[in-house]
Nucleic acid binder design. Structure first.
Lengths: 142, 142
DNA sequence: GTAGAAAAGTGGGATAAAGTGGCAGATTAG
DNA sequence: CTAATCTGCCACTTTATCCCACTTTTCTAC
């Protein structure tokens, strides 16, 4: 039985010129332990988060959200689904490469105003990726 | 068991002069993973969607939705029936060719006011195809 | 603590895949 | 039979991924 502590901690990493960034070892390890099933091919769902951050989920958690829409599927949309639709529109499913990195696409990079440096922040059921300055601004002095 | 994340993301692609357009790799991959049954020969159902967009479904999902409509059908007509008829009337079942492209017929192209550029938008149980300007207009600034 | 080993993180070149456009043969309609 | 359209194929460009080398950090044993 795996102990599910969730994502915790704060880690600064660099983007390379191909917009790749290493997942912090502890975040990567947690993902691999919890979601080690064969159908999980090291996949992560990235979305636009609040305050210019990027949020990362494990695909299993995303699936739970998506199932809600699928079970009520019809030609016409429910208004409640539209919110999730907009999240889906701005989401990106990325894979963890052989070096333990993920790619941040142009739109997400712009949303988070990322330059070369990015900070990963654990938030239990998700992790967030911040521009270091934006993060400091938000949690100033705390 | 495959993790069903649904359709996600946003991808700009070009129509060629024969109104063919490549399916985004991630959308295509998802279709192939989830709908890998032999009777599904890489087929997609395209319909006129809301706000000038085109909606794309996997044929299996289309069938499920159509069955639902049939079981609720009554002898008396109601406004929703007509709406659904119109959707069915304007639907087009397209196949994915060997280069991973689908063809947008003239009527759907006109409905979406497509020019050379089209944006695919993931919406969990379906994907949508938009004129880039129309899409920006609808989700302006978000 | 320190030394050596292992793991994590970074960068860049090589390879593979995705996306695009054009041409040519096949198919269909008139 | 001819013209128009559809489909497959190929070539090329761009982008993503793999793979290896190297540096830095963390871990382990003494």
């Amino acid at each position: 039985m795996v102990i599910k502590t969730g994502f915790v901690g704060k880690y600064q990493h660099n983007l390379d010129d191909k917009n790749r960034v290493s997942l912090p070892a502890k975040i990567k390890k947690y993902i691999e332990e919890v979601a080690s099933s064969p159908e999980f091919g090291g996949r992560i769902m990235l979305t636009k988060g609040p305050d210019n951050c990027i949020e990362g989920f494990m695909v299993g958690d995303w699936q739970t959200m998506a199932e809600k829409v699928k079970t009520n599927m019809s030609f016409k949309r429910n208004p409640e689904d539209e919110e999730l639709e907009e999240i889906a529109m701005n989401a990106d499913q990325v894979t963890i490469d052989k070096s333990g990195r993920i790619m941040i696409n142009a739109e997400l990079k712009k949303h988070a105003e990322l330059g070369k440096s990015a900070v990963f922040v654990g938030a239990i059921d998700r992790f967030r990726i911040w521009n270091p300055d934006k993060l400091a601004e938000k949690y100033n002095g705390r």
